[in-house]
């Protein structure tokens, strides 16, 4: 198995008044390609922060972070952004679709940022709509969809750039149990197809879909 990313004593600290608080402390972790990891832990334990840092929306303040053999911690913004655009997709609890864009356009947007040609974009988005069975909804706007459908679009959008890694922050947190199950099964399916997934979750049932569970408490990995 190839190592996708590795963290070496990675720390994320913030200043709160005169105190320095470690949101994440000395995280050491290797993730292999094809893994499906579930991050668990109570609220405030640092799950989201860890996802954001891995996803390069946020950055560690200390320690090493290597992604596909490249040192992210010492990388320039431009290269980091390229790495991130090419290999990482995000799925959010609140879906975070762009309200003013319809389903088709929401899914297309990441491709725009990758400067992909129009004809190719059409093909890729079309495939994705097919695959998720939402062709009929492509002209609808997010507010016209149910939560589950919105999250489906969110996942489709995360997948459109063919990422190696999907980061999902409580992807089913706003969904009922039936919708949750469907989404988790979709993740499971994607994982089988080779996509590495890291999800943060409160739910034991959801965590069980993963191949490995990592428990966080007060910003540290607990064995």
């Amino acid at each position: 198995m190839n190592i996708l990313l590795s963290l070496n004593e990675a720390t994320r600290a913030v200043n709160s008044g005169s105190n320095r608080i470690n949101l994440l402390e000395d995280i050491t972790l290797n993730v292999n390609e094809g893994e499906f990891i579930s991050l668990m832990g109570p609220s405030g334990s640092g799950k989201s922060t860890l996802l954001n840092c891995i996803g390069m929306l946020d950055s560690f303040t200390d320690g090493g972070y290597t992604f596909l053999g490249q040192p992210v911690h010492s990388m320039k913004e431009k290269n980091r952004s390229k790495l991130y655009k090419d290999y990482i997709g995000f799925v959010f609890q609140a879906y975070h679709l762009i309200d003013e864009l319809n389903v088709w356009e929401n899914i297309e947007t990441p491709l725009l940022y990758k400067n992909i040609k129009s004809s190719e974009r059409k093909a890729l988005v079309g495939d994705m709509l097919d695959r998720f069975n939402i062709v009929g909804k492509k002209d609808l706007f997010p507010r016209q969809l149910s939560g589950g459908q919105q999250q489906l679009v969110g996942i489709a959008r995360a997948l459109i750039g063919k990422p190696k890694l999907i980061l999902a922050d409580e992807p089913t947190g706003n969904l009922n149990s039936k919708q949750s199950r469907e989404i988790m099964e979709l993740f499971s399916q994607l994982n089988k197809e080779g996509v590495t997934i890291i999800q943060a979750t409160h739910s034991e049932a959801n965590a069980a879909y993963g191949s490995r569970i990592i428990n966080l408490l007060d910003g540290k990995i607990v064995p």
């Binding site: 952004s81 991130y84 655009k85 995000f90 762009i98 309200d99 990441p110 940022y113």
Partner: peptide, 16 residues
Amino acid sequence: ATEVGIRKSIGSHRSQ
């Protein structure tokens, strides 16, 4: 703001 956040999280650069 949300739109800005989403766009940044799906790969938009600030200059874009």
